[in-house]
């Protein structure tokens, strides 16, 4: 099941081969020369990254390479020490998760970041509840919306009354994804989106990513495993020791070359080297 889906995607890639991403305008988001350190350790050191509408950028690197930290700066969870974030060519002020959401930046965290003790609808609308005219929670309206969006993502989902603790890993994942796309996200960050999923659910996520691309949403896929994301991405960016090793269009590099970037920090010919590239 999984292999057919992956083959489909690969077929799509070979027929087109060039990505038809329009990179003429300003990028959807650009992170420029971002640094952050925790107690003297440079978790991210002068990293730059950009993303265009309808593009899927895979951010790769070992555990501890700084990719999650970099992306948490974009989603407002961490405050950067230096650097700029530009959204659609304009300087953006992002100092907390609420700011990021105001710019249409939505994040699906590796931990999913769900409140386990409340139900799916409460999680979908957490921080952005629908209220009645009397200023009380409109649970019925929220459940109705939840049923709509979950019906699109996971038609078999029926457990709207149970706390999300009781749900399976895949169901929890679809709740987290639903929360991210419910509010017209323009930029979607997915941190290890398929790490906890079975083959069937992984294929579902792949389908979803293709669908979101059509809607001109830009997507960051973060992973330490190249196999998870290589076939889904238009571009790969590799980080090592808090620095960007380099970036390349996925069609210009092979998996082995990208692995070389991840493990050795060695930039192949098809890639644009970054500050973290191995000097030889």
């Amino acid at each position: 099941m999984m292999s057919t889906t992956m083959d489909d995607i690969r077929d799509g890639g070979t027929t087109g081969h060039t990505d038809n991403i329009d990179r003429a305008g300003p990028p959807l988001v650009a992170m420029e020369d971002i640094s952050i350190s925790f107690g003297g350790i440079h978790a991210v050191d002068g990293a730059s990254l950009d993303l265009y509408p309808g593009e899927v950028v895979a951010l790769l690197g070992h555990n501890g390479a700084g990719k999650s930290t970099l992306i948490k700066i974009l989603s407002g969870a961490y405050k950067r020490d230096s650097g700029e974030i530009m959204v659609r060519g304009e300087r953006a002020t992002i100092s907390n998760p609420r700011d990021a959401k105001a710019y249409g930046i939505e994040t699906i965290y590796q931990t999913l970041a769900l409140a386990d003790n409340v139900d799916a609808a409460a999680n979908l609308f957490l921080g952005r509840e629908i209220m009645t005219p009397f200023g009380t929670l409109d649970d019925a309206a929220m459940e109705a919306e939840a049923r709509k969006v979950m019906g699109r993502l996971n038609p078999n989902f029926k457990r709207f009354k149970e706390p999300v603790r009781a749900l399976s890993g895949g169901q929890r994942q679809s709740v987290a994804i639903a929360r991210a796309i419910l509010f017209n996200a323009k930029i979607l960050i997915m941190d290890e989106p398929t790490a906890a999923l079975g083959p069937q659910e992984t294929a579902q996520v792949a389908d979803l990513i293709k669908e979101l691309k059509k809607e001109e949403i830009g997507i960051f896929l973060i992973s330490h495993d190249i196999h998870d994301v290589f076939d889904l991405s238009d571009r790969v960016v590799v980080m090592k020791n808090g620095q960007v090793v380099g970036s390349a269009k996925t069609s210009d590099v092979t998996k082995d070359e990208v692995l070389g970037m991840i493990i050795l920090g060695k930039c192949p010919a098809g890639a644009t080297p970054g500050p973290g590239a191995m000097k030889d």
């Binding site: 989603s75 969870a77 907390n96 998760p97 609420r98 959401k101 994040t107 965290y109 931990t111 999913l112 970041a113 769900l114 409140a115 386990d116 003790n117 409340v118 409460a122 957490l126 921080g127 952005r128 509840e129 209220m131 929670l137 706390p163």
Partner: peptide
């Protein structure tokens, strides 16, 4: 909203923070 947030914080403080 306040009550909902109280329970969300209790269920997962980090998630509540990340939800804004």
């Amino acid at each position: 909203r306040f009550g909902r947030y109280v329970f969300a914080i209790g269920g997962n403080p980090e998630a509540a923070e990340l939800a804004g």
